[in-house]
Amino acid sequence: MNYSNLQVSILGSNKLTGNMPSSLGSLSALELLFLNKNDLSGDVTLSLENCNSLVIVDLSENHLSGGLSIWLGNSSAALKVLVLRSNRFRDSIPREIPKELTSLYGVRFLNLSNNQLHGKIPKKISDMTFLESLDISTNQLTSVIPQRMASLTFLSHLNLSHNNFSSRIPSSTQLQSFSALNFIGNHHLCGPPLTPSCVGGDSSLEPTPNVDDEGGESSGWVEMKWFYMGMPFGFVVGFWSVFGLLAFNKAWRYAFF
């Protein structure tokens, strides 16, 4: 509490035990916090929300549990790297996390691997447009991979392996550029690059081009449907705009033939 101007705290790879002290919140100038590879337990202290200058936070390889605290939502927009892998977090991504986690627009490196997270990937993860690395492997996440993840154009590392994802991997140049190793361990997941196609008796593995991850018709399919519905009308209009004139204009008819 006496080091309010401290900017870097590197205490990783020690044998620190107990809970994270609430006094960390008094380090308002803190930019780098490394407490990885210790024996810390309990919740992530809420007082971290007072550290508005944090750029890198690494709390990996501890015994932290409980919810991923509200400090995420109140963290500084300067936060770029968040590493929480190999702990004991058990929150559900759809309810405790989406509002707070996806509001971290500036995060470029996010690692939540090897915890006990369950639920879905939040659809608003596409709001984290600067993400370059995302690792949520070795959890208990379920449901489909949101189509919106294809819009994370800066993503150069992705690991979704060893979860319980199902259905088809969304088709996009972005997602299909990753290795199959990044999707393995999801027994009901199919499609490139994991498998050549989605086939079999399980209807959950069949492609659903007319339904997006929001549960409604995708805009692309709606546009295609109206395109095909309008083809007969367009043909009739086009045909009579040419041959109708020829039929009723003798001079044009002679000139055409």
Rank of each mutant, 00 (worst) to 15 (best):
I136K: 01
N159A: 08
T129G: 15
L64Q: 05
H63R: 15
L189S: 04
L155A: 03
N111M: 13
P196G: 03
Y3C: 13
Y105N: 10
M1Y: 06
R148S: 15
H188G: 14
S179G: 10
V8K: 07
K120E: 11
M128Q: 05
S167G: 05
F248E: 04
D135N: 10
L68T: 08
F257A: 05
S76A: 02
N186W: 12
I136D: 00
C190D: 01
D127E: 10
S41A: 10
L59N: 01
I121S: 00
G215A: 09
V44N: 02
E206A: 12
S126W: 04
E206W: 11
G234S: 02
S86K: 11
D135H: 04
V236L: 11
E49R: 09
M1A: 05
G185I: 10
N163E: 00
P192A: 14
R85I: 02
I184G: 07
M224Q: 04
L6M: 10
N87V: 05
L32I: 12
L246E: 05
S47G: 07
L35I: 04
S197Q: 15
T102H: 14
C190L: 12
S76I: 03
L194A: 08
P209L: 08
K15F: 01
G42C: 04
S171V: 12
S41P: 02
L30D: 02
F178S: 02
F233D: 08
K124A: 07
L59V: 04
S172P: 08
L194W: 09
L181E: 14
A29W: 06
V144H: 01
I145F: 04
K99S: 15
S204G: 14
S4W: 11
E96A: 03
L205E: 13
V144K: 00
T129V: 15
S26T: 12
G12C: 02
I184S: 13
A180F: 11
D43C: 12
F178D: 00
G66D: 04
L68E: 09
R90V: 08
L11D: 00
T138C: 07
K225R: 15
W71M: 14
N74F: 06
G67N: 08
C51D: 06
L27E: 07
H118G: 04
F34N: 09
S161F: 02
Y228W: 14
N19D: 06
R168W: 13
N159S: 05
E31H: 05
T17F: 07
C51S: 10
S113P: 06
S197I: 14
L101M: 11
L101N: 00
V81A: 13
C51F: 05
G67D: 09
S133F: 11
V44A: 13
R95E: 14
